[in-house]
Design a protein around this nucleic acid. Structure first.
Length: 143
DNA sequence: GCCAACGTTGGC
DNA sequence: GCCAACGTTGGC
């Protein structure tokens, strides 16, 4: 069974537009220096889906990505502690889901986006996934 | 730009 | 192994 995740990125460092420009090839999700975030990436499997969230500016889920390479050494460091997956863009959120929307929805009050504000790679529960997809104008079954 | 929250580091 | 100092993240 597939798992769901959420990746945060500051759009001026790595935006959804840049991610989409990488197309089906995808891109290494490098630069993570946090054990919890790394452990989440190590738990990912090929084909796992994730939300792409813009932090700092935007503050919204703007699209959906999928894991297309398992966690492997991060090319931006020689430190063997850090590794990361590759992800590729799947589709846009027809209607981006803002942090405000998430916080306003009682069904999402336990979401890591709210409770673990600073964690940059987070797990998303099935129910949360479905709910955010619906809020964004996507049928969760069609993804 | 500020600052609260929180993760990491390093001295003891 | 504790905990104070420090650095970073990210919402506002």
């Amino acid at each position: 069974m597939a798992n769901y995740w959420l990746f945060k990125s500051e759009p001026f460092k790595w935006s959804w537009e840049m991610q989409k420009a990488k197309g089906a090839v995808g891109e290494e999700w490098d630069g993570v220096r946090n054990y919890q975030a790394r452990n989440n990436m190590r738990a990912m499997k090929i084909g796992d889906k994730a939300f792409f969230y813009h932090s700092n500016e935007g503050l919204e889920v703007v699209g959906i990505v999928e894991v297309n390479e398992l966690s492997a050494p991060d090319s931006t460091t020689d430190d063997p502690r850090w590794d990361c997956v590759h992800i590729r863009a799947v589709c846009d959120m027809p209607k981006p889901v803002t942090l405000k929307d998430v916080k306003a929805n009682p069904a999402l009050e336990k979401m890591a986006l709210v409770t673990s504000m600073r964690l940059s790679v987070q797990p998303v529960l099935q129910d949360e996934w479905d709910e955010v997809c619906r809020m964004g104008g996507l049928d969760p079954k069609s993804i």
